[in-house]
Design a protein around this nucleic acid. Structure first.
Lengths: 125, 125
DNA sequence: AATTGACTTAGAGTAAACTCTAACCCGTAT
DNA sequence: ATACGGGTTAGAGTTTACTCTAAGTCAATT
C-alpha cells in the first residue's frame, strides 16, 4: 500500500492532482483506518496507464469513460475495445503528423545553420 | 489576397481564432481600403507552419516568441535556431512516447479481441 | 502539552486557448 | 431604401486541467 504522496512521487505529479483525478472518477483508492487514501499495486498500474493516455492527448473525460466502463463489468468489453481502437488511431495520426513536422523542422534547422555559417564568414573577412 | 474567412476555411479554424492569433502577435496581416484584414501568400505559409507547431504541442507563447524574433531581423537567427532545435527535440520525444503507447494499445486491443471472441464461443455453445 | 508533518475536505483561483457577444460599419442585391 | 452578408472592435465568457487555500484531524516527536 502507498500513501498519496508516495504515488505522486512515483508518477511525477502532485497529491493535489491525484485528488483531482479521484473527483473526476478516474481512480478510487480505498481508505485506511485514518481515513487516508491507500493505493495498491493495481491502482499504481492503472494510474501509469492513465499517465500514458494523458501524455498521448486523451482528454480526462474519455479516460473517465473508460474507467467507468471497466467498473460496469465485462459486458462493456466491446465498448472499451472501441475506445482503445479510437485512441490507437489518434496515436497513429499524431505520429504521422509529428514525423512530417520533424522533417520540416530539420529542413528549417539546416537552412538556419547555413545562414548563420555564411554570416560568420562574411564577418571575419 | 485572402479575406479572414477564406484563410479560416483554408486552415480549418474560425475567423475568431485568427483575430485571437493577431492579438497574440502571431500574425499581422495588412488592411485593405475598408479596414479589413487582407492576408497574402506569405501570411498563409506562415500560418500553415503555425498550425504545424500548434498540432505538435508548441504553446502560443513560444510561437509568438519565434514570430517576434523574426520581426526583429537577421541578428536573431541564432535564437530562432535554438527555438527550432528545442521544438525538434520535443517532437522527437513525443514520437518516442507515442510509439511506445501505440504498442501498449495494440497489446490491450489484442487482449480485448481475444476476450470478446471467447465470450462469443461460450455463448453459442 | 505543544509542535511538526502528513493527511483530510470543500471550494476558490489560475492559465491556456479559444469562443462568443454586442454594437457598429460597409458594399451589394432586391 | 432597406435588408443581407460580410467585415470591424472591445471585452466578456467558456472549457480543460489543474493548483492552491483554509480549516481541520491525527500520529509521532520534542
Amino acid at each position: 500500500m502507498y500513501t498519496i504522496s508516495e504515488i505522486a512521487k512515483l508518477l511525477g505529479i502532485t497529491a493535489h492532482t491525484l485528488r483531482y483525478y479521484e473527483k473526476e472518477q478516474i481512480i478510487a483508492p480505498i481508505r485506511n483506518a485514518n481515513g487516508e487514501r491507500a493505493y495498491d499495486d493495481s491502482n499504481l498500474t492503472w494510474l501509469r496507464f492513465v499517465m500514458r493516455l494523458k501524455q498521448t492527448q486523451m482528454p480526462i473525460s474519455q479516460i473517465r469513460e473508460y474507467a467507468q466502463l471497466y467498473l460496469e463489468g465485462e459486458h462493456t468489453a466491446q465498448a472499451r475495445l472501441n475506445l482503445l481502437e479510437d485512441h490507437r488511431n489518434s496515436v497513429q495520426s499524431q505520429i504521422k503528423n509529428l514525423t512530417a513536422t520533424e522533417k520540416v523542422l530539420e529542413d528549417k534547422i539546416a537552412a538556419y545553420k547555413n545562414l548563420i555559417t555564411e554570416d560568420k564568414e562574411l564577418k571575419t573577412r
